[in-house]
Amino acid sequence: MSRIDAKFAELKAAGKSAFVSYIMAGDPNMDASLEVMKGLPDAGVDIIELGVPFTDPMADGATIQLAGQRALAAQMTLKKTLAMAAEFRKGDDTTPIVLMGYYNPIYYHGVDQFVTDAKAAGIDGLIVVDLPPEEDDELCLPANAAGLNFIRLATPTTDDKRLPKVLQNTSGFIYYVAINGITGSGSANAQTVGAEVARIKQSTDIPVCIGFGIKTPQDAQEMAAVADGAVVGSAIVEKLGAGEPAADVLAFVRTLADGVHAA
């Protein structure tokens, strides 16, 4: 059982949904982002989604694009992101870490070497948004073989014909994109999203977490009530981008976590 599987089992036994929080590794620099990362579990975060900065983040809106630019300007790399995760693991061996990013840096690093290094750094799962199921041989299958969960995105346009392909080789959880568009745009509607999550859950036992368009504790509570978890990224990254102290960012994260866990 992976750390992700164990976390969902623990939360299910407690009657709670999971709170997944996103931060960009290296934003605004490695030390500052590591400080925030270390504080996330105590702020109520169940699973950490750690972004890998990339020059062409096609699925991300302006807030996370700018975070990536800040991280790249601070010389953040995939290798340093793994080092950051390894440093976090020295003090926390239970909180799951999911790397979120794009295939190019992984391909450049070398797939076999990346899988080995990610596992050694304490990574539990991967979200690679530009690798569809048709490309599972590239990374998904090697990652699964090494014990890394490969988390796939489902969207409002994932119909019943496409869904089985999306579920293929997926593990850990399914990331349901609540709105059409990029991160940080629009607001999710719990009634509409709830129906879509229920449809997906008819075809799988894998937990479904909702992301995109969740900005407030109330949003988080509403989304968590119709799914197995809620993911918040841009609203947190925005505060980091504004230069707010780590303590203030983590206090905001706590309000989101309380919302999710109250669902």
Results as ranks from 00 to 15, higher is better:
Ala6Trp: 13
Phe8Val: 05
Leu11Met: 09
Lys12Ser: 15
Ala14Phe: 15
Gly15Leu: 15
Ser17Tyr: 14
Ser17Arg: 14
Ala18Met: 05
Phe19Val: 07
Phe19Ser: 09
Tyr22Arg: 04
Asn29Ile: 02
Leu34Cys: 08
Glu35Ser: 13
Gly39Gln: 05
Gly39Cys: 00
Asp42Asn: 13
Asp46Arg: 13
Asp46Ile: 12
Glu49Leu: 09
Glu49Cys: 06
Glu49Lys: 06
Pro57Gln: 06
Met58Glu: 05
Ala59Leu: 00
Gly61Lys: 02
Gly61Met: 03
Ala62Gly: 02
Gln65Asn: 07
Leu66Gln: 14
Ala67His: 14
Gly68Cys: 12
Gln69Met: 10
Ala71His: 12
Gln75Cys: 02
Leu78Ala: 03
Lys80Trp: 04
Ala85Ile: 06
Ala85Glu: 07
Phe88Ile: 11
Asp92Glu: 09
Tyr102Trp: 11
Asp112Val: 00
Asp112His: 02
Gly122Asn: 11
Asp124Tyr: 01
Gly125Cys: 05
Gly125Val: 06
Gly125Phe: 09
Pro132Tyr: 05
Asp137Ser: 08
Asp137Phe: 08
Pro142Trp: 02
Pro142Gly: 06
Asn144Ser: 03
Asn144Cys: 01
Phe150Gln: 08
Phe150Leu: 06
Arg152Asp: 14
Arg152Tyr: 15
Thr158Ile: 07
Lys161His: 13
Arg162Ser: 08
Lys165Thr: 11
Leu167Ser: 10
Thr170Trp: 10
Phe173Ile: 01
Tyr175Ser: 07
Tyr176Lys: 06
Val177Gln: 13
Ala178Gly: 10
Ala178Cys: 11
Ile179Arg: 05
Asn180Ile: 09
Gly181Glu: 02
Gly181Lys: 06
Thr183Glu: 12
Ser185Arg: 14
Gly186Val: 04
Ser187Pro: 10
Ala188His: 12
Asn189Pro: 01
Ala190Asn: 03
Ala190Arg: 01
Gln191Tyr: 01
Gln191Ser: 09
Gln191Arg: 05
Val193Ala: 03
Val197Asn: 03
Ile200Asp: 02
Gln202Lys: 12
Asp205Ser: 12
Val208Lys: 00
Ala220Asp: 04
Gln221Tyr: 02
Met223Lys: 01
Val226Ile: 08
Val232Pro: 02
Val237Gly: 10
Lys239Phe: 00
Leu240Pro: 07
Leu240Cys: 06
Ala242Met: 11
Ala242Gln: 15
Gly243Ala: 09
Ala247Gly: 09
Asp248Met: 07
Val249Ala: 08
Val260Thr: 09
Ala262Ser: 15
Ala262Ile: 13
